[in-house]
Amino acid sequence: MLHHCIAAENRKLRGSPIWVVFFLLPLLSAAYGTFNFLQNQGVLRFNWYNLWTQHTLFYALFFFSPLVGLYAAYLWRLEHLGHNWNLIMSQPVPPLYLFMAKLAVVFKMALLTQGWMLTLYLLSGRLWAKLPGLPPAEVFLWALRGALAAAPVIALQLLLAMLIRSFAVPILIALGCGLAGVVLSSRGLGLVWPYSLMIAGMNSNKTEDALAGSEFSFVLSCLVFLAVFLLAADCLLRKQDVKA
């Protein structure tokens, strides 16, 4: 039943302009990151690690959370307009499955975004910066960790977009919470705030692994936040009257 819901959600994205945003933002980040990397060779070392920090620093710090916020807001916007709440909530599927299907689709988009970003990183490193060899294996792990850390943020953003029937406000909240995440991360509190988890996971401002030794806490934090937000969504969907 859940896979049917996911299939339905995937259909809703057909021909949608969201793919333009998905394509463009990592491209901008990669273009600037590589340019800055090459311009600052006095300060940065000429290796794949430093290219990674330049590609992902601003992306992970400031833009990944509003980007997933945008994906989440778009999916709920489709239901808020067109009286589609009546349609989806009168279908023979548990309401939580509808939420989880959206979570799965946005997570897939976040994974694709990470994949696209990695592809750009590889291409710009080899073809533009002309770095030798291949990136270290850790960067793939960091990209995956970033995607895992996106899951609780996606759940929270979906919750916000479900409750706040405005497209723009949840994205602004994502930006604000992302900025709060930057501040908390810098004070060593990265694991207690969902938006800081992405920063920690992607390791975007260090060349050595910032999570070394605390991978278990990181994963636990991701799962606990995800569980809490899913529970909240289930409660709200079951208890509240549907307002088309």
């Binding site: 302009p17 945003v21 901008l28 800055n36 601003f58 833009f63």
Partner: peptide, 23 residues
């Protein structure tokens, strides 16, 4: 009519603007 476009452009402008700060 697409608010997605407005917010997407806003995000892209933020990103480009931030890059400009370090150019």
């Amino acid at each position: 009519r697409q608010t997605l476009l407005v917010m997407g452009v806003g995000l892209a402008c933020s990103l480009c603007g931030l890059f400009a700060a370090y150019m």
